[in-house]
Write a protein that binds this DNA or RNA. Sequence first.
RNA 1: GUGGCCGUAGCUCAGUCGGUUAGAGCGCCGGGUUGUGGUCCCGGAGGUCGCGGGUUCGAUUCCCGUCGGCCACCCCA
Length: 411
Amino acid sequence: MTRFRGPKGTDDILPPASRVWSRAELTFIELSGVYGYEPAITPIFESTELFARGVGEATEVVDKQMYTFADKAGRSLTLRPEATASVVRAVIQAGGVQGVMKASYWGPMFRYERPQAGRKRQFYQAGVEYLGESAPEADVEVIELGYRFLQEMDVPDVEVALNTIGDPADREAYRAELTAFLQERIDLLSEDAKARMELNPLRVLDSKADVEAVAGAPVPIDHLGPDAFAHFEAVKAGLDRLGIPYRLEPRLVRGLDYYNRTVWEYIPRRYDAAQSAVGGGGRYDQLFELLGGRPTPAVGLAMGIDRIILAMAGSELPRILDLFVVAAGPAWRDEAFAWLSRLRHAGIRADMALGDRSVKAQFKAADRRGARAVAVVGDEWATGAVTVKDLETGTQQVIPIEEITAWIAEH
RNA sequence: GUGGCCGUAGCUCAGUCGGUUAGAGCGCCGGGUUGUGGUCCCGGAGGUCGCGGGUUCGAUUCCCGUCGGCCACCCCA
């Protein structure tokens, strides 16, 4: 009998480790709410064609990393590799954006890759999409939101790598120039890069195998039209005003085809792994039209939760229980359990060890379960009191039962 | 998808130049008399040595395959 294990490239997140994930989710929902975003909940699978068109046939993601399957009616469906195409599809389907829409999401994404730490076949992203707004302040706001999320998650030394890849018309002229440059040095290029030249020459720029060959290559930021140029200047000025540090990275191009103008990534300096980016985003003003909607400017970001948790400054797991109830002996168990129920009704996060266990064992359980305090139900119960102990300071006292809520608030 | 490293208790690992009862630390459970954790002391439970096949009198140890993890490339969050 072979035991079951989770599919390759998937992670199980169990208590108590899941506390960190809860924290990430709550933090993101809270923070994006502060910025005016509300959840958009879309299917976890979509028609394969949506991603092929939206994300781009020429991208690695679509080319070889999709979890594609046929349903019973023979439709080709794909587990979403990212969320933006879905959100945009859903908004178009609902009639398009009236004014602006600010949407957030959280959930699993799927990419068929060779797994590594921080690179799973099922991984989690949280993101926002600012739809219907072309002003550069939208880019600034979204960049700031991601940056603050990383700060609140205690990811140290985050650098924002920033670039602009211009508008489609800018890119067409630039692309010809880049291709000419690459043709001249074709002998120096890796096989990968040669293949890519045809499909998507921009991506040769950030190929690690070709850093020397492309050292003097022309770069998109030097080939901007006046509008894209002004937009990028405004984005930089806005980031400066908000005090968001960034580093210009002229070779940063992103792997999803829908981006234009501003693109960026968040890179924690102290987390040196190949999977270094913990989040990224960009503007995608053409995606609505590409998917059959009205022209709608938009900018968004996605944060890689798995990687953020790997990059977090190691910290102890938070204590999750306000109070742990201890029965001083078997005779007190019924009383203690009934009181536990009342505490929970009052909204106190409380628990106790069930079964017949020594006081010592119950205290140990309280500590292990992450309780901040213990209340002992015993002889003092007859006078309407319990003994409470703060497990972090070790101090202990006898208090009237009805003061328990106030006592917890103080500790 | 390419190349490489690895797979022994819940976790981190030691070990067996192929041989008879496979170890440590941490964790877990219990105890150190009367109602007290995180420190200390004592005791206990817990292992198909990832899985399958081959070589062999005999394999956890050698070989092959497979599954899984990790690293680099690639890709991206």
